[in-house]
Design a binder for these strands. Sequence first.
DNA 1: AATATCAGAATGTCCTGACAAAGTTGTTCG
DNA 2: CGAACAACTTTGTCAGGACATTCTGATATT
Lengths: 253, 253
Amino acid sequence: MVQPETVLPADFFLELDRSSPMPLYHQISTRLERAIRDQTLPAGARLENEVSVGQRFGFSRPTVRRAIQELVDKGLLVRRRGIGTQVVHGQVTRNVELTSLYEDLSQTGQNPTTTVVRHEIGTADETIANALGVAVGDRVLHVTRVRYADGVPLAVLDNTLPSEFADFTKDELANRGLYQLLRTRGTTMKIAKQQIGARSATMSESELLSLPRNAAVLTMKRTAFDSSGRAVEHGQHCYSPDLYTFEITLVDK
Amino acid sequence: MVQPETVLPADFFLELDRSSPMPLYHQISTRLERAIRDQTLPAGARLENEVSVGQRFGFSRPTVRRAIQELVDKGLLVRRRGIGTQVVHGQVTRNVELTSLYEDLSQTGQNPTTTVVRHEIGTADETIANALGVAVGDRVLHVTRVRYADGVPLAVLDNTLPSEFADFTKDELANRGLYQLLRTRGTTMKIAKQQIGARSATMSESELLSLPRNAAVLTMKRTAFDSSGRAVEHGQHCYSPDLYTFEITLVDK
DNA sequence: AATATCAGAATGTCCTGACAAAGTTGTTCG
DNA sequence: CGAACAACTTTGTCAGGACATTCTGATATT
């Protein structure tokens, strides 16, 4: 028994701006996402079919398809041939994005602050050399920071940067997010490879995060790559597990 | 200074089968991925441009674009207007997929086995009701299993299933992966929402996983949704962190 | 009443065509 | 020689068209 489709109101896309630099498919996608989040399109609802949306609102079918695919990729919609497109049940959650922790916290209203506890020029050992795609012995910048959220210590962030960024100052790193700084240099982060795990905190981490000796910590190793596919940053991070988790939505292709 | 493009050999797509049910774009994508993995297309290489690939091999440009986009989404390629498409540096790693742990382990040659330590019909409390989209008090199946890899305890898997799957037997769950079982019922998993964290192991977990008292464990809560967008499974899993991590590739949209 | 078949509905795939935007390279001018 | 501009290159966006596949509901048959 197929749910009747939810016909979109005639003024649904009233605010779309065809002269905007924002692609049309993205505007459509954003508008639909808003409807899902405010439950105009509630969980389980079947969306008006893509051919009809295209005809009624003056979009080409590939443009509508692309907009819907964005939401499918985010896990908000599912599609089936013969049936149509449905809104996924369950709470709509924030999904992990390629951003720095600084930006994450800012975006969720948890005022981030930073203490730089290490800032030194060193040379790349084999692990770093492999991660950053540089030669063993190349100059790198080692930085260790403690990140606070609303004044509470949340994470110890150990990062290594290639020589082209070795001139980031202690001050800069204390006052801005790392990705913010990289962006001021015209570096666009495109990909991050991450490995998430857990272990017991070191002595130093326990102190920095105000955790009991040997407490469990959530860890993440990350290498980020720019728009040329080159590694720009390698990090080993350690989070207070009571305060931080990773939320990830997986979608089957 | 732009890298010269790597021209694909004339026989590069020789094995593609246009009569296959496998979509052409996926075949192209798979073939390109193979070339990246075997380093025919090495890290940093610039791929032959999409217009040329389409002309030379007889594919439409959107089909080529779609194939390339699949690899961009996987973090293997990056694209820039005016420059072209490049292979990302860094090791090509396995990326997390919407599969069960059983399938993960099988696929990586780590012979999975399972002990069922709890198997009982119960009723949904508020948390479970919210996760599964059922009513509080509805019938559910609670299952707790220990998963071994090559005979070593790896994870404690606590799962709750809605009543339609309440007839899975202890035997079935001991011998097959959960997602395998769901698939025999015609259920297609499409989306999983996951929350990854860490904490200290409970007494019971320490014993089941042969870990020291209060050892750090890696945790994951998961709710999986089917192709109608309905929740089909809620799990709370706990992993031995020395043996298991999550590898995730994030791609900027 | 139960089962099989068919038609309609909706997404999935692939193609052709056109124009825009961002980056690099080459040419011209001061 | 360096800066500015133009041309070229490559990806990004959008449209329109056609056909294939999967699913549901209606109808026909037993």
